[in-house]
Amino acid sequence: MVWTSRICFRKYGNFVDNVRLYVRGGTGGMGLPRLGGHGGDGGDVWVVAKKDTRLKQIKDKHPDKRFIAGVGSNSSIQSLRGAKGEDIEVFAPTGISVTSDHGKMLGELNREGDKLLVAKGGRGGSPQSGFLPNKGQTRNIRLDLKLIADLGLVGFPNAGKSSLLTALSHAKPNIANYAFTTLKPEIGKVMYDDHKQVSVADLPGLIEGAHMNKGMGHKFLKHVERTKQLMFVVDVCGFQLASNTPFRSAFETVLLLSKELELYKEGLLSKPAILVINKMDLPEAQSHFQELEAHLENKEESIHLFAEDVIPKSLMHFTHIVPVSAMTGLGLPLLKSLIRQSLEEQDTIDTEAQRNQKILELRREIPPSSIPSWGVPQPT
């Protein structure tokens, strides 16, 4: 038995996936020339990953978005070495990338407790600086949330991703029969009878040229990077964005989606993926599905029927191909079961890979001289 629950729904307007901040390290304290005293260093500004934190909380609690660390204490007769200024910690969710205002990557916070120094305090006054302190580092930085979910829905606009998320998780994203209904990521959670939960992310629809930041472009693609697996959602009857754009069959849609992911970051095609063929309740859906199946079974031959600019270097491998109707519920129980199966298989593989990596690291740490000679062939 599988049942669903609305667990984690973010309404449009409340979801914040990036924020810009002004950060400044504290100025150092004055030195004391006649006694050779050192002023205290200025405080530092850190970004710290903390559980149950959202970027929106930063905007709400700090509307000016300015974080300035404390000034170092001056050297004095009572304390020749001045105290360091107070550090400032900016708490952010895990899955954050931090960049400078020039676009330089400063670091990522992927686990709770990870810390990143974003503005260093100035040195206190000392004999080397003529007892004059230095100012702290000043920066404008950007925090970007790369959404973390078990499964990311990938598809062109109007493929039925939002309807599928509703059917799977009882989340209630905006749904309408036109493109670009989803402008912000929506999260739903599928719950099973043993209380297992799987998070599913409906992401803004791709368009051709997304890798060049057309449409939602990089806003979509950056979230795809942080999902464990992908779920391609394709309209069985094909897709056409507008009257002046070409019509794409279901198989050509699969090729184009793969191409956009590949052009943005080739490694995305190595993620485990499920292919969902949606709208099987439509007239002639069965014949379209049979045509798609034939193409998928003979991919190497079928790709030559299409223009080179839609063909990816490597074809996406799908662990499962599932025909469904998000409107009638056709195929959804099977899809829910396969989602869990695929994720559990990946967890098993990842655990084994981590164990093997740990063994290799331990072996590197053991000096060769400490390995016993018994059982090891000796030179004659």
Rank of each mutant, 00 (worst) to 15 (best):
S199T: 15
E225D: 02
R226P: 03
D202I: 12
V234R: 04
H218V: 10
K214G: 06
T245M: 13
S249P: 07
G205H: 02
F239P: 05
L256A: 14
E252F: 00
K219F: 14
Y264D: 00
E266Q: 14
A210R: 04
F247C: 03
E266S: 10
P246L: 02
L268H: 08
K189E: 11
T227D: 00
N244E: 11
G205I: 11
M216K: 15
A242M: 07
K265P: 01
V224C: 03
K184C: 14
F180K: 01
I274S: 03
K222P: 01
L230N: 04
F232P: 05
N213K: 10
L206A: 05
V190R: 14
S243Q: 05
L241E: 09
F232G: 03
K184N: 15
S258E: 12
L269I: 07
A179R: 02
K184G: 13
I207S: 03
I207M: 12
F220V: 13
Y192V: 12
V190C: 13
H218I: 08
A242D: 14
Y178W: 13
E266A: 10
Q197A: 08
S243A: 14
A210L: 08
K219P: 04
V236I: 15
D194A: 09
Y264Q: 08
E262W: 07
E225V: 13
K214Q: 15
A179Q: 11
D202F: 06
K222M: 09
E225F: 05
L206R: 09
H211Q: 05
V233Q: 07
G267D: 13
E266N: 10
S270Y: 13
M191Y: 06
K219Q: 15
F239I: 08
G238H: 03
L221M: 12
E266P: 02
K189F: 03
G238M: 07
L230F: 00
N177P: 10
N177Q: 09
G209T: 00
G209S: 05
D202R: 11
L203I: 14
Y178P: 07
A250S: 15
Q240I: 12
A250H: 05
I175T: 06
L183F: 14
A176V: 10
K196L: 08
A273R: 06
E266F: 06
V190L: 15
M191Q: 15
M216S: 10
Y192H: 11
F247D: 07
M191F: 13
F220I: 08
K228P: 07
P185R: 10
A273T: 13
S243I: 04
E266T: 09
Y178T: 09
T253D: 10
D193M: 12
G238Q: 05
S270N: 13
D194P: 09
A242G: 13
L203T: 05
F180P: 07
H223D: 01
N244G: 01
L206G: 02
C237D: 12
L269A: 00
K219L: 08
C237I: 09
M231N: 01
T227G: 02
K219T: 14
Y264R: 13
T181F: 12
E252Y: 02
I274M: 04
R248K: 14
